[in-house]
Design a protein around this nucleic acid. Structure first.
Lengths: 233, 233
DNA sequence: TATGTATTGTCTCACTTTATGACAATAATC
DNA sequence: GATTATTGTCATAAAGTGAGACAATACATA
């Protein structure tokens, strides 16, 4: 996008992605901060004219996390008239010494396609892109003020994640390939933001016939070692 | 959009809407046929540059059904590279003696925002728009071949409807304000495409405390008259 | 080596929800 | 007045869930 009129991208349309990770205790999301602006935002970008939406988002997430084959889903397009903020865009371009005139198209109204991604926190090495100072993990209940309507996008993403966790079993994407029952429970608890009963949870998970039991995990702790599990198939 | 370059609309972005109705027996959707083309399609359209996505879709549905305040929700954006079909668009414009050059922008790649709407079948008087020959109801299991990826959009819409019917109680939008328990059950059965148990269904609906019971409905049939219900609030 | 500690896997019992069938009530017909 | 089809509700069985109990066990400590 650097130093050119917009001949490459679909105009007026962007994507944003709420990237969830789980560090064993709390649910986190990736947020980036733009150079010299104090502006926080979700990772996002534009769709090339010869690129599918899916490819565009995958590419964006890969660039920022180094991960490929990330579980990801779009959940809503945000299309309000007043959601864009050209002043903020201008500040970002200014802060990076980008040519304003040549990026005029970015000041227009944008609709954005909201996505969420679930990734294994431990495998990720977030990298800031060329416009950003930093990219980092924030606890889901401690998200700073974000630009435009990005806070609303985060709220919606979390809502969708909560609705989907039980039926679609997508929580697996937040864990390493092998995990203990306790870890699985902690993921559910972090997403739903409520305590679950250990015995009921275990019974339910096992009865669903989706887990494969492996060797035990010896952590060196003074108690019975738990089994490791993976998702079947 | 008639006779102008595209200065009014967001380029490369459209909406399509799967409009569901229920005639008492089967679930139906509205499909339109373009003049002199034999092309069937979902009702859809473009978003004006100074119009929110929601307003655009509401307007489109109102124009075609005469209904305002229709229950509607977006469920997915379709963004594959090859989903557009400029040849079909050209046939539609040709069939209506529209100026091809002035509508050149319509031949570009489009992403579309899929919506579904639920309406009271009996209140609707579908009207073809100026490009269309006819608009009419089709049984959900007897949908003709549609242009572009519209069949896929219908499939997805139905899937989303099925997933949402139980938890979000959106089925009410398919019924008149007052209805019998049997009618309500028939809506569920049509959407889920499976028989439900009368007693369990009734008990569940009543236990949810969402229905208000009214006078009985005397249909002139030789059996006990059922109560009429409406949704609370 | 023996004992203590924290956590795990599983079981039990009470309680709630759901499935399935039974049955009386009733609006219209014969 | 008897018949018919459907409705509203109850009875019982089956399945699922909540809450706690308890033995098993991996390691720490003595």
């Amino acid at each position: 996008m650097k130093g050119s009129k917009n001949t490459n991208y679909i105009p007026n349309l962007s994507y944003d992605c709420v990237i969830f990770g789980f560090n064993g205790k709390t649910l986190k999301i990736l947020i980036l901060e733009y150079h010299n602006t104090g502006l926080f935002a979700l990772p996002g970008g534009f769709i090339k004219k010869n690129q599918s939406l899916k490819d565009a988002v995958n590419k964006g997430v890969e660039d920022r996390t180094g991960l490929t084959n990330v579980f990801m889903d779009q959940f809503q397009i945000f299309g309000k008239l007043d959601r864009s903020d050209p002043a903020a865009t201008r500040r970002i371009l200014d802060g990076n010494n980008e040519d304003l005139e040549k990026n005029e198209w970015m000041m227009e109204r944008f609709l954005t396609v909201g996505h969420y991604a679930l990734i294994n926190y431990e495998e990720v090495d977030p990298k800031p892109d060329h416009l950003s100072d930093s990219i980092g993990w924030y606890d889901i209940d401690n998200v700073p003020q974000l630009m435009m309507d990005h806070n609303e996008i985060v709220e919606k993403a979390l809502e969708v994640l909560r609705n989907n966790i039980s039926e679609k079993l997508i929580g697996m994407n937040l864990l390493p390939p092998k995990f203990t029952m306790k870890q699985l429970q902690q993921v559910f608890e972090a997403i739903l933001d409520q305590k679950l009963r250990r015995t009921s949870f275990q019974r339910k998970m096992l009865s669903m016939d989706i887990l494969e039991r492996h060797e035990k995990l010896f952590e060196g702790k003074a108690h019975k070692a738990p089994f490791l599990y993976s998702f079947k198939q």
